[in-house]
Simulated assay, not measured.
Amino acid sequence: MMRDAAQFDPTDSRVTRPAFWGALPERWTSDAEETLVCCHVRQETHDVKSFFFRSPQGRTFSFEPGQFVTLELEIDGEAVNRCYTISSSPARPHTISITVKRVPGGKVSNWLHDNLLPGASIRVLGPGGEFTCARHPANKYLFLSAGSGITPLMSMSRAHHDLAEDRDIVFVHSARTPDDIIFARELELIAASHSNFRTSFVCERLGARTAWPGVTGFLTLPLLKLIAPDFMDREIFTCGPAPYMKAVRDLLDEAGFPRKQYHEESFSFETLNADEPEALVEAPAETAVGAETEAATFKVTFAKSNREIQCGTDQHVLEAARQAGVRLPSSCAQGMCGTCKVKLVSGQVQMNHKGGIRQREIDQGMALMCCSKPLSDLVIDK
Rank of each mutant, 00 (worst) to 15 (best):
A164V: 09
S62A: 14
H46Q: 11
S193H: 12
I236D: 00
M154S: 00
R360S: 15
H160M: 14
K299R: 15
D233E: 15
E188I: 05
Q364H: 12
G129C: 09
V215N: 04
S121H: 15
H263S: 09
A211V: 04
P258K: 08
L116F: 09
H316M: 07
Y84A: 04
H94N: 11
A333Y: 08
D12G: 10
C239I: 03
W111G: 01
L368G: 02
A79M: 09
E278F: 11
L252R: 01
L163H: 08
L221F: 06
T11P: 00
D250S: 15
L272A: 06
V281Y: 13
P10I: 13
V172Y: 02
P374G: 05
F171V: 06
C332H: 06
G105R: 06
T301D: 06
E254G: 04
Q334C: 14
V69N: 04
S268T: 10
A283M: 13
G147I: 05
L251K: 08
V41H: 03
A288M: 10
A184G: 01
A321T: 03
S89P: 08
I380C: 06
Q359N: 14
E286V: 15
M1P: 11
G66E: 04
M1G: 15
D9N: 15
V289R: 12
F302P: 01
A208V: 09
V15N: 14
I380T: 03
D314S: 14
C38P: 09
F237C: 05
H40V: 00
V15C: 10
F231S: 02
R59T: 00
A321I: 02
V342F: 00
W21F: 13
R205C: 10
G312D: 10
A303W: 03
P118Q: 05
T210H: 10
Q323L: 12
C311L: 08
A228F: 04
D275F: 11
R307L: 13
V100W: 04
E270I: 04
K341E: 14
Q348K: 15
T271W: 01
R259V: 07
T220L: 06
L378D: 06
A285D: 12
Q67V: 05
A247E: 01
G240L: 07
A285W: 00
P213Q: 07
G147H: 02
F20L: 09
T216R: 02
E276F: 12
G207P: 07
M154E: 06
I362T: 13
A6E: 14
G147C: 08
E34F: 07
V289C: 10
F201N: 09
G207I: 06
D253G: 14
H316E: 09
A291L: 13
G214P: 02
K101W: 00
E319R: 05
E265K: 02
P90Q: 04
F61P: 02
V15G: 02
